[in-house]
Design a protein around this nucleic acid. Structure first.
Lengths: 136, 136
DNA sequence: TTAGTTGCAAAGGCTTTGCACGCGC
DNA sequence: GCGCGTGCAAAGCCTTTGCAACTAA
């Protein structure tokens, strides 16, 4: 789990207690937390941490490519620490639960040149939607 | 183009001038407008239309399945009138331009049962990202 | 030391809501 | 005329920003 912190330090990241706590919260498990949830969990360990710092830190982790920003609905963005393994998301239409999934093949391959309109296409994000077992 | 208005009327939609104008704006072309852009275009024809009414109307069109809500970035949602033809989106990472595209095959088929975790998967949305010709 | 980071509070963008008036059916 | 739709303004949620105090390296 300290892979993340080590990588960050070796990149010259200034390691403050706030940043360490945010990184630890995200490193815990493959959840998909909102900025506010990250703040809440971080505040359990470091009560005075401010929302602004959480937003700043999340933004940097995204820029560094260590965390993915996920907009599954129109509400708050969620942050996905599982950035090292390509994966897609399966979202419950009822309760909003998110699971990481790995479809077969490369989604990019499904877009033929004739459908690329001169774009230099780099990535494909897939969001599967349906009802989870609990909501069905 | 009045397909849309007729469909709505036959569904018992109360037809006001505001709703007609919003429907006409969306029916014009396959753009991907924000609520505010819809409001601006609607206001060209009906100056006193309020933002709240535009939001209400867009929400209803989405509920009725006549318009798709697209969250391509963390900013404002966009509304896509091309709801009758299955398609995906190609977004420019630099300028945000959106194009409708049609990949080969059904994206749903790429998710094997073992990766569905008991979900009743209904839809797959794909967002391709890259640089458009103008930004490359 | 010193440049980068933090916290606070305020502002900002987008969207929803409450309520009285207005209008399609 | 009835009931839903509208406009206005205010509030709401999520996020960013300005600035003085602080601190890791």
């Amino acid at each position: 789990m300290s892979d993340l912190l080590e990588r960050l330090r070796s990149r010259g990241w200034r390691l403050t207690s706030q940043r360490r706590v945010v990184a630890e919260v995200l490193d815990g498990d493959h959840v998909h937390l909102t900025a506010d949830e990250v703040h809440a969990r971080a505040a359990e360990r470091l009560p005075e941490i401010s929302r602004a710092t959480v937003y700043n830190t999340l933004g940097e982790l995204v820029t560094l490519g260590e965390v993915l920003e996920v907009a599954t609905d129109g509400r708050a963005k969620r942050y996905d620490p599982n950035a090292h393994q390509p994966h897609q998301h399966l979202v419950c239409s009822a309760c909003g639960t998110i699971r990481d999934v790995r479809p077969t093949g490369d989604p990019l391959a499904a877009l033929p040149a004739a459908e690329r309109f001169g774009f230099d296409v780099a990535t494909a994000e897939v969001t599967y939607r349906g009802l989870c077992p609990d909501c069905a």
